[in-house]
Amino acid sequence: MNLAEGVQFVSFIILAVLVIGAALGVVLFDKIVYSAFLLGGVFISIAGIYLLQNADFVAAAQILVYVGAINVLILFAIMLVNKKENYAPIPRRWIRKGSAAAVSIGLFVLLSIMLTRTHWSVDLSVASPALPIETIGEHLFSDYLLPFELASVLLLMALIGAVVLARREEIEGETTAIVGELPAPALELPERPREPVA
């Protein structure tokens, strides 16, 4: 093991510990703000792992998109919802927690067995391209052209949807129900809610 490999190995260990520790923190902390900040930590550490694998574009995108957009959005959402509510503790909550932990650990064991047993066909002959961003661009405009274009439709639709959900509705009183009785309230389903089961 020469010096470069040693440095890589040590950095990988550090990053891996960071990822796992922060991810555990996200799940286990009671305060949601801590979880949100630790989630940012997870994303940044994963970006570090990408860097170790020579995927610098993916690392940059990871930080820009996940930390810069998604995590900040989560923090905003937490900041805006400052309603304090004390939930009654659920009896036998440990059963739920325990079963969730058991399922997760079982899945982890299964996936680790799968990972170690599988013979991954890694093609070492392909050298990493000299200009990764240009290579990505070429792919986006040749064999991944259609998904790339479809993503624009997806984004447009998401934009419209966000506007629809967020805007304040001015209710127009002109819509008259055909029913002789009271018209249904605006922006609600015309069907009556079911009577709660006694």
Partner: peptide, 29 residues
């Protein structure tokens, strides 16, 4: 192709979520 499958699947799904919540004053929606 896998990327195409996933992008089109998400276009369909996210649009469906949005339409499901279109009656936004109704708690059921």
């Amino acid at each position: 192709e896998l990327v195409m499958i996933f992008v089109s699947l998400e276009t369909l799904s996210i649009a469906s979520y949005l339409m499901t919540g279109y009656m936004k004053r109704d708690p059921r929606s």
